[in-house]
């Protein structure tokens, strides 16, 4: 039976980052129980947490796959968003459908009277900043959620990702190309961070938190 209780911050680190490493957590608690100080435990837990979250060759491989998959999906779906918007606009307001053809996408770029709703670059600075912030927050939460549902509900996670990507691509249309690319990068990075945070917290032993 343990007689001492780790400090609140230490418990947060142990439960948040080291829950998946039972032997290490056990070693730290055993040493703490045998007389080590709170400061010792905090230092050891914080260092161990850094070792847990730092990328290893295996996680880097996983991240590269995620980045490539994310970038590919985003590119494909962004194109689709533009096409769908364009087709819808033509159906509702434009010339007859038979005049729509793919070559228009290659020939009309950023022209004011282009029938294609592409990059306009007319957004105000505060809108760019707000979108950056939203991209970070939303994608991190989304990455966490996708990682969570991915376990048993692959289709739901794909639907979530698709929806997110559509939203991101839709938002992007108001920005310049450089801003679009950076926001997209931030969004994908957020997805990875969210997924990784879930991965760190999720394990068979994570339920046994330190009280």
């Amino acid at each position: 039976m343990r007689t001492r209780r780790p400090a609140r911050l230490t418990r947060m680190i142990l439960n948040g980052f080291l829950a998946g490493n039972e032997p290490l957590t056990g070693d730290l608690l055993e040493e703490f129980d045998s007389g080590r100080s709170q400061w010792w435990l905090l230092r050891q837990a914080a260092t161990a947490a850094l070792y847990e979250i730092r990328p290893t060759s295996a996680t880097l491989r996983g991240d590269m796959n995620t980045i490539m998959l994310g970038a590919g999906l985003l590119a494909a779906l962004s194109l689709e968003v533009v096409m769908v918007s364009y087709v819808l606009r033509r159906i509702l307001f434009g010339p007859p459908l038979e005049r729509i053809n793919a070559s228009l996408y290659l020939m009309h770029r950023n022209i004011a009277d282009s029938p294609i709703p592409t990059t306009v670059g007319s957004a105000a600075n505060w809108t760019v900043a707000l979108t950056f912030a939203l991209a970070i927050v939303a994608s991190t939460v989304l990455g966490f959620t996708i990682a969570r549902v991915h376990d048993g509900h692959r289709q739901r996670s794909v639907a979530l990702l698709t929806t997110a990507v559509f939203a991101c691509a839709g938002l992007n249309m108001a920005f310049t190309l450089v801003t679009q690319v950076v926001i997209t990068g931030v969004f994908i990075a957020g997805l990875i961070v969210g997924g990784r945070v879930f991965g760190l917290n999720h394990s068979d032993t994570a339920e046994r938190s330190i009280a």
């Binding site: 032997p23 056990g26 055993e30 129980d33 046994r208 330190i210």
Partner: peptide
């Protein structure tokens, strides 16, 4: 699993 380790086992 050991009680002084909060029910955790040694590796």
């Amino acid at each position: 699993p050991m009680p002084q380790r909060g029910g955790r086992a040694r590796q």
